[in-house]
Amino acid sequence: MPEKPNKQRAVLLGGLVIGGLWGIPFVNMINCCCCAGILLGGILASYLYREEFVEGMPPFESSDALITGLLAGIAGAVVATLIGNLIHLIFGPIGAELTRDIIEKVLQRLEEQGSIPSGIYDDLLDQLEREINKPLTLYEVLKDFLFGVIILPIFGMLGGLLGFAIFGKKKTTQPA
């Protein structure tokens, strides 16, 4: 009986998307909404793996979606660490600077609307400034990787399961 397709392609592509959406500055702002980018990567990995099933193979099950999403999350953590630190080494703390610009605009808008007291604005900018000037050390890289390797597989797995819920089982006719 033919076996299920290899997960490698779906996991790698899903991992690349997750890693990119987690590691590339500015793009990674999408994750500010409950890891939406990671969920999308998990959904994509699940979809890509589902598409590899052809007639004669066992059906695409929820366990396949779970494992694909989980593995894509792990691959994503590695990719994100590589991409994030490479960008930091080449361009400096561009990510933190972009984040500061965006948060600065949001805070300005909130201050104009009277949603925050004016004193808080300066405190927050000071905090962001400290974040930008933080040096890139091995400890920081390992800590970020550790956070990534915990968070990304969890949300990647949830994305994989959501993908399964959205696209459904893929029934394949198996030979008698």
């Binding site: 929820s62 366990s63 779970l66 949830l158 399961l161 959501l162 819920a165």
Partner: peptide, 20 residues
């Protein structure tokens, strides 16, 4: 709404993995 779409496949998947 999310658990309604995540929990059923999750339970099914874990049972399936255990059987395998």
């Amino acid at each position: 709404i999310l658990p309604l779409y995540i929990v059923p496949p999750l339970l099914e998947a874990v049972v399936h993995i255990r059987m395998s």
